[in-house]
């Protein structure tokens, strides 16, 4: 095999790799573009399945109508509120659980009891009905807390954070202790500042988890008006009359014909995904580090 031949085959190989990678990127992207295109196409085109990745008979009507759907925005608000409450509570509990647990047994008496409690909770659960009974008996049904408190301790994130804390050089902590820092100060001033990637990772998990969960809403909320966004979208039904009523406020009938349940639902899906699509690139640079470092313990 001469040199030229070899470099030719290497070139072909290289090109092939680029083709495959671009192909995989497109395969991931196109279905998402398809739903965006559907949300921007007229109902006729959508029903005929004529929409690919470019809108057919471009229309903004579904979005105009969505603006007028009070329940969508109410649910949107509930989801936003839930994400913030969950995020706050999760982060506090994760940090304050992971830090003591990252200590050695000799440094923290009782560690193994807590650790076992934590691990067993991750592996085993009481199931849907008993959990429902607890939430109900605590009087949490139909409150935002029913969506927040049952998942207050994300065990996997605690373990991930704990593994990360363990990787922090001991010398840093010892130096702080010699300077007279309390454990609280050590945590806040030494550990947290260098744990940004892992913190960002578990924060992302928390946000994604609480934004995407639809099942708790289905169980713990007894009326549609209290549904978080994903539960609302999951239970969408053909509600033309409501559509029409809203539609008449904002538009005339011929424009209305451009909307059907399919492009309207697509619009709801697109809008509901926007918050995550905005947050995710912000945290992307962190979570790669966070996942790699925290996922396993040496």
């Amino acid at each position: 095999m001469n040199l030229q031949n070899k470099s030719l085959s290497a070139k072909i190989g290289k090109t092939l790799i680029y083709v495959i990678i671009i192909f995989l990127g497109l395969v991931t992207l196109l279905p998402l573009l398809n739903i965006v295109a559907i949300s921007l196409s007229s109902s006729g085109a959508v029903t005929a399945n004529a929409v690919g990745i470019i809108p057919v008979n471009f229309t903004l009507e579904p979005y105009k109508m969505l603006v007028d759907d009070p329940q969508f925005w109410r649910s949107f608000g509930i989801s936003v509120q839930r994400v913030f409450l969950s995020l706050g509570l999760n982060m506090i509990l994760i940090i304050f659980m992971a830090y003591p647990l990252s200590k050695r047994k000799s440094e923290f008496k009782g560690r193994s009891i807590y650790m076992n409690l934590l691990i067993f909770a991750m592996l085993f659960n009481g199931g849907m009905i008993p959990t429902y009974l607890v939430v109900r008996n605590l009087g949490l049904l139909n409150t935002i807390w029913s969506l927040v408190l049952p998942s207050a301790v994300p065990v996997f994130s605690v373990i991930l954070m704990m593994n990360f804390f363990r990787g922090v050089p001991k010398a840093l902590e010892e130096a702080a202790i010699i300077d007279g820092a309390t454990p609280m100060q050590v945590l806040l001033r030494v550990y947290l500042p260098i744990s940004i990637p892992s913190l960002a990772t578990v924060a992302l998990f928390s946000i994604v988890g609480s934004w995407n969960d639809f099942f708790s809403g289905l169980i713990y909320m007894t009326r549609t008006t209290n549904y978080p966004l994903m539960t609302y979208i999951q239970s969408l039904t053909v509600d033309i009359q409501q559509m029409i009523q809203q539609g008449i406020n904002s538009t005339n009938l011929s424009e209305l014909m451009g909307v059907s349940d399919r492009n309207l639902n697509a619009a709801k899906i697109v809008v509901s995904s926007i918050p995550l699509i905005l947050i995710y690139p912000l945290l992307q640079k962190y979570f790669i580090t966070g996942i790699v470092v925290g996922s396993v313990k040496e």
């Binding site: 506090i92 509990l93 304050f96 659980m97 830090y99 003591p100 647990l101 200590k103 923290f108 009782g110 807590y114 409690l117 934590l118 909770a121 085993f124 659960n125 009481g126 199931g127 009905i129 008993p130 959990t131 009974l133 607890v134 939430v135 605590l138 408190l149 049952p150 998942s151 207050a152 301790v153 605690v158 454990p183 609280m184 945590l187």
Partner: peptide, 22 residues
């Protein structure tokens, strides 16, 4: 350390362990 970990453990007991009795 015990105080730090306590709130989390309380949540675990209520929402993870109590249902297990079920």
């Amino acid at each position: 350390y015990h105080l730090m970990i306590l709130p989390g453990i309380v949540f675990l007991l209520i929402f993870n362990y109590a249902p297990m009795f079920g």
